[in-house]
Amino acid sequence: MNRVINDPEKVVEDMVRGIVAAHPEMALDSANPRVIGVATKKPEGSVGLVTGGGSGHEPAFLGYVGPGLLDAVAVGEIFSSPTAKSFLDAFKAADRGAGVACLYGNYAGDNMNVKMAVKMAAAQGIAVKTVVANDDVASAPKTEREKRRGVAGEIVMWKCGGARAALGGSLDEVIATAQKAIDATRSVGIGLSACTIPAAGKANFHIADGEMEVGIGHHGEHGVQVTKTVSSRDMAKMMLDIILPDFPLAKGDEVSVLVSGLGATPLMEQYIFYADVAEQLEAAGAVVAFRFVGNLFTSLEMNGITLTLTRLDDELKACLAHPCSSIGLKVLA
C-alpha cells in the first residue's frame, strides 16, 4: 500500500508534529508530546474534558479538541490505547480546578490505562470522573451492553459533554449529560475493504471485493455477518435492522443522524447513504433534527460506512446546537 509517510514506526509522532504545525493553538506546554489540547484556556473554574484513544481514527480523537468540545486528548499508537501517563498528563492539562470528565471508549486497553491514570490523578489531587462509550451495537448483545465498544457515537458524547461544560455545568452535570448522550446513542458499521497498520505492513483482516462485513469494528474486529455487497439502500436497511430492535424509536421521536466514512469512502457515497437512511427513518416516523455527514471517525484507509443514531430530548438538542470549533466539527453560533 502506497502511503504519504516517513518512518512507518513513527507515523504518530509525525502526525502530531503536523497537527501542531497546522494548528499552533493545539500545542500544549505539556512535556508529553502525546497530549494535544487547546492552549487557549477556557474559563477558569470550568470542568475540563479529556478523551484519548488509539491513533488512525482521525479526525478522532485529537480533532475534537476546541471551544465547546474537549480540552485535552491522550494520543495512542495506531489502534492502541494511550499510556496511563498520557491520560494523566491530559488530565493535568485539562484541569482548571473544577475536575475533569474523561469521556472515552470501551476498550480493554483504554479501560486499564484510564483506571491507572485516574488513580494517579487522585493522588495528585485532581478529581476525575469517567463516562465509557459503548454505542457499537454489533459488538455485544443487548444483555451485555457493558461489553460493547465505543465508536463514532463518542462524537455525540463529546459534543454534549462539551456543551454542558461550556454552559457552566459542574463535573457531575457534565458527566450526567455525557452519560445521557451515550445512553441515547447506537452505532453500527459496514466494512467494504480492509486497512493496514503502517508498521505491520499488511492488513490483518480481509474483505473480498464484492463482499462486505456488517457490524465490523473500528479496528477490523469481525462483525456479525459477511455478505455480498448490497446497495446503499439495503445497507441502510440492514443497519437500521440491527440498531432499531436494540433501540426502538416511537413515532415522532427526534433523532440525530451521524454518518461517517471509514477513510476511503468518497463523500459522494456518504451522502448517497445519508439520503437512504433519512428516507427510511422518516418512513418509520422518526424526525431527523440533526445531521452530521463526513469522515468524522475513520480507520485509516478502510472503506466502509458507519451509522450513529441518537434519540434526543431538549437538553441533548440544546447541547448539539451549542457552538463549537475543532478540526472534526464546527458548529456556528
Binding site: 499508537e77 492502541s80 490505547s81 499510556t83 496511563a84 486497553g109 490505562n113 483506571k115
Partner: peptide
C-alpha cells in the same frame, strides 16, 4: 509510560 495499549498497563 511509552507503549500504552493493554499490554502497557
Amino acid at each position: 509510560d511509552d507503549i500504552g495499549g493493554s499490554m502497557g498497563p
